[in-house]
Design a protein around this nucleic acid. Structure first.
Lengths: 210, 210
DNA sequence: CCAGTCATGTGAATTTTTTAACAAGTGGAA
DNA sequence: TTCCACTTGTTAAAAAATTCACATGACTGG
């Protein structure tokens, strides 16, 4: 366990490893080598060993990795061996899809409050949660122990949502709106836009055909 | 315009540039320098110039880039200056959210057919589209000119969906299901899982606090 | 218990990506 | 016209990430 800087790409791969490992476990595999796991994840086996080495020594030489144990170790390394409470801002198309997405809890995240500034939506019940005006975020965040903010507003409202979150002392933000936001630099922000992937596919197809 | 290998990270950034440029255009900016664009995207200005250089010379020395022109050029470079027809497999939570997501067309992608193997869903109309059994994919794909497959099934069905897509001669696949798929290597696959980003946020928060 | 096989963890070599630096081109003012 | 302030495109340098290669430890069968 050496505490150097950990590449962002490593974190992305760890998420892949978890996914593949859980499927392996479901299929009854108890042990796996970095070589086999590598093939399943389409990466190099050294890559896997190096990624894991940032966090500790999880394998047994001559044997491999115990699948269940490795899953647990990776989750602990990422800090997802507990439940993170989230605040959702913006209950439109994307927002309500997220509220309905029941994998959240299974994966260690729980949307505990939903906010929207549309007067027609405020007060409505959605998936067992009352939609509240974002001005109440500041008082609710400490009460409910909200740590992560999820922005799912239209792009022009994203910055305002971010301001509310920062003001409420939220610790990290994930932004589904297609616009950049400015927040104090100690607060991590992740942008999610699956069109990026569609662009990547379109580009790769285009490359191959001309 | 030199036709070297283009880093995947470059493609990801180009998507960001488009997003920021479109917001700039909406705010009335006609020209922008790589330096200002860089700040808006939180990257280095050399990075931007280098990314663009893979595809051509789009700027004017001493002046900068004409915003509208640059957007058009980037889109053409990525191959998204046209509409890509998509087939959706799996009309569950995720799938129906995608069908309702009206940005698709605005961004150059159109879901032209929806498939699901659940007998209760087959025949149903959804967002003006009839849900069809995936066995019909092979005959419909050429008729409708479907080029990209979108998998939104449960994880254990993803491989079967992929097989149908490959069989129907689809050119690229985007997989929203949380499992890896195997396809012939000339077919590009992109995996989308926004929990990756939640993990990244959780990790970054955890890093800062212990 | 020893030999042979397997697979990890890691330092060194390689490759890739990012950043810095600057020559070359642009436009405007004097 | 000439000078000056800008900003690109590109080459060179630096940094970072990936892959290789192997010493080290673990298990198995004889």
């Amino acid at each position: 366990m050496k505490s150097e800087h950990i590449p962002k790409a490593t974190i992305g791969r760890l998420a892949v490893y978890i996914q593949v490992l859980e499927n392996l476990l479901r299929d009854g595999n108890e042990v796996i080598s970095s070589e086999k796991l590598a093939r399943a994840c389409s990466v190099n086996s050294s890559q896997i060993r190096k990624d894991l080495a940032y966090f500790g020594e999880f394998g047994v030489r001559g044997v491999g990795y115990y699948v269940q144990e490795l899953i647990t170790s990776i989750k602990a390394s990422l800090g997802i061996d507990r439940v993170w409470k989230c605040a959702l801002i913006g209950v439109g198309n994307m927002g309500s899809a997220l509220l309905r997405h029941h994998d959240f809890e299974k994966r260690g995240f729980k949307i505990c409050a939903a906010f929207d500034c549309d007067p027609d939506k405020i007060g409505l019940e959605f998936e067992g949660m009352e939609i509240v005006c974002p001005t109440h975020l500041k008082e609710q965040a400490p009460e409910l122990n909200l740590e992560i903010g999820i922005i799912a507003t239209p792009p022009d409202r994203a910055q305002r949502a971010a301001n509310h979150l920062v003001d409420a002392n939220i610790k990290g933000i994930i932004n589904f709106a297609p616009s950049r936001i400015n927040v104090p630099k100690h607060i991590p922000v992740e942008y999610v836009d699956f069109f990026d992937h569609l662009y990547a596919i379109a580009f790769q197809i285009t490359l191959g055909t001309d």
